[in-house]
Nucleic acid binder design. Structure first.
Length: 737
RNA sequence: GCCACCGUAGCUCAGCGGUAGAGCACUCCCUUGGUAAGGGAGAGGUCAAGGGUUCAAAUCCCUUUGGUGGCUCCA
C-alpha cells in the first residue's frame, strides 16, 4: 500500500492504489480543482494514473489568476492542444489527412501531417480551425487514456493504414533505434535492443472523450484531464517539413499553434510578437536607411547605404585598433582564386553545392563547345584534379585524400576560378610566400575579407543569412605550444567587443566532431588535441558553455558565440576554430630551433563573424538607437526659426571640427515638428538653438529616449562632453548639462 | 530546394472585374514659431515581370521573379 511523499516532505499513506487526483483531494478541494497532472518521482503523468507503490509526487497545477503558468503546466496544455488542433483540422478538412507527430515546443506546439494529393491546408482555413478548437475546448471533453497490447495496437494502426503512426508505435516499442522527434538533429536515443512484441509494454492511446466514439490518437501522454483545462489555443502558421527530418523522405505539412493558460496571456503573446517585429533589423534597416537589398543586384547581397556604412566603418576601425594592440598584421586579398587553390584546400569540389559555380575562361568554354563536350563532361573535367596535385596531397596527408576517380590527365582538365567561400587559402599562400622562423611565430594575418557562398533561397534572411559577406577574419599561424595562448587572446577579444557593445545575452558553444560522420578531414590524434585545446580555453573563459558533437567545421573544432534575434532564432556570430589540416594541405612549415621544418597549426577566428550578420544583430540589439559613437547622425541642430540659422551654422561648424557627425534642420517647420521628425531617426542628441542660446553661446540639449530635455549648456561644454562620449564608446548617453 | 502566405507612390497601407487612393516623406507658398506633427497647394504609380480568360484585369487563372514564416542546409 503506497506511502506518498509530498514536495514539503510530509507523507501520506493509503490502504489502496490511488490516483493523483485522489491524492490532491485528500489534501484539499482547491488543489484537486487546480491539478492538471502529477509528477511521480520526477516523471510527468496523467492525473488519473494509479499509484500503487511508495513514491515522491508533486502535483502540477493550473496557474492562479494573474500568475504565469509553470513550464510543466504549459507543456501539458500545449501537448493537449496539439490533439485538439489535429481534431479540428480533421473536422474541417477531412480524416484523410494523416497525422504523424505533434509535440509541444518552447513557444507552442506543432503537428506534422500528411496532406493527400489535391488537398491543402491554407491560412484560409484558419478561422474555421480556430473556431473548431474553441468549440472542442468549450465541450470540455475528458482526455481518456487506454492501452492496447503491442500486437493489438499495431494491427489496429495497420488497419488504419497510417504508416507514420505505425512508425511511431514501432519506435515506442523499441523496434527501431531512435525516437522520432520531428527534427533530424533531435533524434532522442532509445534502447537499440529489439525486444519481442509479446514482452514489450502496451501502446497507449488517448481519446478526447469516450473511446470508440470521439477522436483518438496514438500518444504516450500525458495530458491535462480535459479539453477545458487548455486555457486558450490557436493555429499560428503552416510550413513544410520532412518525415524524420530527412529531405529525401516524405514531405509533410507542419501546422504550428500555440496555447496559453488564459486568453489574456495568448493575446499578450501575440502582441509581443507584433512588438518584436518592430525591432526586426529588416524593418529598422529600411526605416533608418541602413542597408538595401535589390532584386536586380541579387538575392542575399547587401548594399550598404551611407548610414549603414558609417556603422560598419566605425566597427571596423574599432576592431582594427584592437588587432593592432594584439600584434596582428593586416593583409588584402582578391575575391576570387583559381580552382586549383580550392582543390588544394579541399573546398572544391566537396562543397560545390554551397558555392557559386566556377568561373571558366571564355576561350576554354568555346574550345570545349567546338569539340561537342557535354555539360556533364565539362563538370567532370572542371572537378577533376591533376595527378601531380593528387599525389602531393595524398603523400602529405598520409592518406588517400584524393581518390583515383577524381584524378585526370593534365590536358583533360579545365582551368577556372571561383569566388572565394573562405579567406584561409589566400592567407595560407601569404604565409607560404616567405620563410618563417620559430622566432617569428605566431604570424597573425587579418583581413576584412569578403566571401561568397551559395545559400539556398529559402534560407536567406535580411542581413543575417546572405550570399556575400565580409568576415572580420584572421588566421593565426602558430606552434603547437602557442595554441592555448592564442585561443585565449581570441576569446578575450570577443569578450572585449561584446562588453563594449553591452551584449550580454549570448551563449558559448564548443563544436566537436560527430564520431559517426566522415565529412571531417585530418587524423584522429590531431582532432583529439584540437578539441582538448578548445575545451580548455572555453573552461578558462569563465562562462557557461555547451559541448556539441557534430557542430565542428570540417577541418577542426571551434568555439562559437551564439546570439538570438528578436523572434528567438539563434545566429552564430564570433567564432574561433583550431585547424591542424590546412598546414598539411598547403605544406606549410616554419624552421624550428632544431633547424628542421615544422608544421604550424592554424587558428581561424572572426570575433564579429561577419559584418553583415553582426550589424543585423546589432540593429536589433539597440532597436536602431545606436550609441553615439556608432550613430550615423550623432547630433541634429534645430534652429527655432530662420532667424537662428546663422548661429546654427556656427554650432554645426564647431561640432564638425570636433569630428562629430552633425546636420542642421533649416526647414520652416516649428520646433515641435522638427523634434518629431528627428525623433524618428533615433538621433542621440538634438540641439535646439534660438536667440537666447545665440546670446550666451550655448545650446539647449535634448537627449534621445527618456532623458529628453536636458536644458541649456555652453556650446564648448557640449562639444567636449560629446567628444568624450564618442571616444570612450559609451553605450549609454553620457552628456549632462 | 520544399510547403503556406505576400508584392499597389520613397515609406506604411486601403481598393480585390468597370477612369489608380489615403497618411507620412518630398517640392513650392503662407506662417518666424522654445522641446513629440501650424496651414495651404503641387508633384509622384506600366498596381513585381510575362502570358492567358473577359467587352473590360491592380482585381480571376498560369509562369517567372522577389520577400516572409517554417523544414532541410550553414565548410
Amino acid at each position: 500500500m503506497p506511502t506518498i511523499t509530498l514536495p514539503d516532505g510530509k507523507t501520506k499513506s493509503f490502504d489502496h492504489p490511488v490516483s493523483g487526483l485522489e491524492v490532491a483531494q485528500s489534501i484539499g478541494a482547491g488543489l484537486a480543482k487546480a491539478a492538471l497532472a502529477v509528477k511521480i518521482n520526477g516523471e510527468l503523468k496523467d492525473l488519473s494514473t494509479k499509484i500503487d507503490h511508495d513514491c515522491a509526487i508533486a502535483l502540477v497545477t493550473a496557474p492562479k489568476a494573474g500568475q504565469p503558468a509553470s513550464p510543466d503546466a504549459l507543456f501539458l496544455m500545449r501537448h493537449s492542444a496539439a490533439h485538439v488542433m489535429a481534431e479540428a483540422i480533421q473536422d474541417v478538412l477531412g480524416k484523410d489527412i494523416l497525422l504523424a507527430y505533434g509535440p509541444p515546443t518552447d513557444t507552442g506546439f506543432f503537428y506534422d501531417m500528411f496532406v493527400p494529393e489535391g488537398k491543402k491546408i491554407s491560412t484560409e482555413h484558419f478561422d474555421k480551425i480556430n473556431a473548431r478548437i474553441a468549440e472542442i475546448i468549450a465541450e470540455n471533453r475528458n482526455f481518456c487514456r487506454y492501452e492496447q497490447s503491442a500486437t493489438d495496437g499495431l494491427s489496429r494502426l495497420k488497419h488504419e493504414s497510417n504508416k507514420y503512426k505505425i512508425d511511431n508505435a514501432e519506435r515506442a516499442l523499441g523496434m527501431r533505434s531512435s525516437v522520432y522527434t520531428g527534427q533530424k538533429a533531435a533524434f532522442a536515443d532509445a534502447p537499440t535492443s529489439t525486444p519481442s512484441l509479446s514482452t514489450t509494454s502496451p501502446l497507449s492511446f488517448y481519446a478526447t472523450g469516450t473511446p470508440g466514439h470521439n477522436w483518438e490518437d496514438l500518444c504516450r501522454g500525458p495530458h491535462v484531464p480535459s479539453t477545458g483545462r487548455i486555457g486558450a489555443a490557436r493555429v499560428m502558421s503552416i510550413a513544410s517539413s520532412y518525415w524524420h527530418g530527412d529531405e529525401n523522405s516524405d514531405r509533410l505539412t507542419r501546422v504550428y499553434g500555440t496555447a496559453f493558460a488564459t486568453q489574456a496571456e495568448l493575446d499578450a503573446y501575440l502582441n509581443q510578437l507584433e512588438e518584436a517585429k518592430k525591432r526586426d533589423h529588416r524593418v529598422i534597416g529600411k526605416h533608418l536607411r541602413l542597408f538595401h537589398i535589390d532584386e536586380d543586384v541579387g538575392q542575399g547581397l547587401i548594399l550598404w547605404t551611407p548610414n549603414g556604412s558609417i556603422i560598419r566603418k566605425e566597427l571596423q576601425t574599432f576592431i582594427a585598433a584592437e588587432l593592432k594592440k594584439q600584434g596582428y598584421t593586416e593583409v588584402f586579398t582578391p575575391h576570387i582564386g583559381r580552382l586549383e587553390l580550392y582543390k588544394t584546400s579541399g573546398h572544391f569540389p566537396y562543397y560545390k553545392d554551397s558555392q557559386f559555380a566556377p568561373i571558366i575562361e571564355r576561350q576554354a568554354l568555346e574550345e570545349l563547345s567546338a569539340t561537342g563536350c557535354t555539360c556533364a563532361e565539362l563538370m567532370h573535367r572542371v572537378e577533376g584534379v591533376s595527378a601531380r596535385l593528387a599525389s602531393g596531397i595524398n603523400e602529405r596527408t598520409k592518406a588517400q585524400t584524393i581518390t583515383p576517380d577524381r584524378v585526370m590527365a593534365d590536358d583533360k582538365l579545365v582551368e577556372g576560378f571561383m569566388l572565394k567561400p573562405m579567406n584561409c587559402p589566400h592567407h595560407a599562400k601569404i604565409f607560404a610566400s616567405a620563410p618563417h622562423s620559430y622566432r617569428d611565430m605566431p604570424i597573425r594575418l587579418a583581413e576584412f575579407g569578403t566571401v561568397y557562398r551559395w545559400e539556398q533561397s529559402g534560407e536567406l534572411n535580411g542581413m543575417t543569412r546572405v550570399r556575400g559577406f565580409t568576415q572580420d577574419d584572421a588566421h593565426l599561424f602558430c606552434t603547437e605550444d602557442q595554441i592555448p595562448g592564442e585561443i585565449q587572446g581570441c576569446l578575450s577579444l570577443v569578450k572585449t567587443i561584446f562588453a563594449v557593445l553591452g551584449m550580454k545575452d549570448y551563449r558559448v558553444r564548443v563544436g566537436l566532431r560527430d564520431p559517426d560522420s566522415n565529412k571531417y578531414t585530418g587524423t584522429k590524434e590531431n582532432w583529439d588535441k584540437a578539441e582538448a585545446a578548445c575545451i580548455a580555453a572555453a573552461e578558462s573563459l569563465g562562462v557557461q558553455f555547451s559541448r556539441e558533437p557534430g557542430e565542428a567545421a570540417f577541418y577542426g573544432p571551434k568555439i562559437d558565440f551564439v546570439v538570438k534575434d528578436v523572434i528567438g532564432r539563434e545566429w552564430q556570430l564570433g567564432t574561433v576554430q583550431v585547424d591542424y589540416n590546412m598546414a598539411i594541405r598547403f605544406d606549410l612549415s616554419y624552421i624550428g630551433p632544431d633547424n628542421k621544418p615544422h608544421r604550424p597549426v592554424v587558428i581561424h577566428r572572426a570575433p564579429f563573424g561577419s559584418m553583415e550578420r553582426f550589424c543585423g544583430v546589432l540593429i536589433e540589439h539597440f532597436a536602431g538607437a545606436f550609441p553615439t559613437w556608432l550613430s550615423p547622425e550623432q547630433v541634429r541642430i534645430l534652429p527655432i526659426s530662420e532667424k537662428s540659422n546663422e548661429y546654427a551654422a556656427q554650432v554645426e561648424q564647431a561640432l564638425r571640427e570636433a569630428g562629430v557627425r552633425v546636420t542642421t534642420d533649416t526647414g520652416n517647420d516649428r520646433v515641435q515638428g522638427k523634434i518629431k521628425e528627428a525623433t524618428d531617426w533615433k538621433i542621440p542628441y538634438l540641439l535646439i538653438v534660438g536667440p537666447r542660446d545665440a546670446e550666451t553661446k550655448s545650446v539647449s540639449v535634448r537627449a534621445r529616449g527618456a532623458e529628453k530635455d536636458l536644458g541649456a549648456m555652453p556650446l564648448d561644454a557640449f562639444v567636449a562632453a560629446i567628444k568624450t562620449e564618442i571616444e570612450t564608446k559609451r553605450a549609454e548617453l553620457g552628456v549632462k548639462p
